[in-house]
Amino acid sequence: MIGLVILGVIVFIVVFVIVIYNRLVVLRNRVENAWAQIDVQLKKRYDLIPNLVETVKAYASHEKEVFEKIAMYRAQMVGAKTPGEAAQANEGLTSVLKTLFAIAENYPELKANQNFMMLQEELSGIESKIAYARQFYNDVVMMYNQSLQVFPNSIIANLFGFKPKEYFEVESPEERRAVKVSF
């Protein structure tokens, strides 16, 4: 009888560990999938930017510094290995793109250019998708990290080497400020 009780307890513990382990694996995979979704949107933006730059260059070729910064941040985006590195490159690229659009304001014929307007609209749509994907990623990271920290999950997570994931965060105070829109 005692042997059956001990066997029952062992089976219960094994099943309990398996359930927690599988839950952690599912959450870790969701985090990786959410990061892949951000990566897809960043790649779309990455591919769109050269067309935008070429269109602006035709009208404002003397703005060499802005074009060089765009190239630099695009390279950083490609080389980013962590969400933190990607977020930092993303912030820089977003800032330079704002400068590019400010330059476009000085060229009425550029603002009227159909190709420029289409590229600007497409970029705006991609930026919205990036913002949504970033929010989703951070939500999934929060669920995963919480799951690693609660008892008894923390014991299983440490036992099997699960590590917390990094958030995709805005770091610059400029990005945190409200955007002023005027017509």
Rank of each mutant, 00 (worst) to 15 (best):
Y107C: 07
Y107G: 12
Y107F: 05
P108G: 00
P108K: 00
P108L: 00
P108C: 00
P108Q: 01
E109C: 03
E109S: 10
L110P: 10
K111R: 12
K111A: 02
K111Y: 01
A112W: 06
A112M: 06
N113E: 10
N113P: 07
N113F: 01
N113A: 02
Q114L: 05
Q114K: 10
N115P: 02
F116E: 10
F116N: 12
F116D: 11
F116R: 09
F116I: 01
F116G: 13
M117Q: 14
M117A: 08
M118Y: 10
L119N: 06
L119C: 04
Q120N: 14
Q120F: 00
E121M: 05
E121I: 00
E121W: 07
E122H: 08
E122N: 09
E122G: 00
E122C: 00
E122F: 01
L123G: 14
L123R: 07
L123K: 03
S124M: 08
S124K: 09
S124G: 15
S124C: 04
G125N: 13
G125C: 03
G125E: 12
I126F: 05
I126R: 04
E127T: 12
E127V: 12
S128P: 05
S128D: 12
K129Y: 10
K129W: 08
K129E: 13
K129G: 05
I130H: 02
I130E: 13
I130P: 13
A131K: 14
Y132M: 11
Y132I: 14
Y132S: 15
Y132C: 06
Y132G: 14
Y132L: 14
A133D: 09
A133Q: 07
A133P: 14
A133V: 07
A133E: 11
R134L: 01
Q135H: 12
Q135A: 08
F136V: 11
F136Q: 13
F136W: 04
Y137P: 12
Y137G: 11
Y137F: 12
Y137E: 13
Y137A: 06
N138V: 04
N138Y: 09
D139V: 03
D139T: 09
V140Q: 10
V140Y: 03
V140I: 10
V140W: 04
V141G: 06
V141M: 05
V141T: 07
V141F: 06
M143K: 15
M143H: 13
M143R: 14
Y144T: 09
Y144M: 08
Y144D: 13
Y144F: 15
Y144W: 13
N145K: 04
N145A: 00
Q146V: 06
S147N: 13
S147P: 10
S147C: 02
S147D: 07
S147M: 08
S147R: 13
L148Q: 05
L148C: 03
Q149K: 13
Q149E: 15
Q149A: 12
Q149F: 05
V150L: 03
V150F: 08
V150A: 05
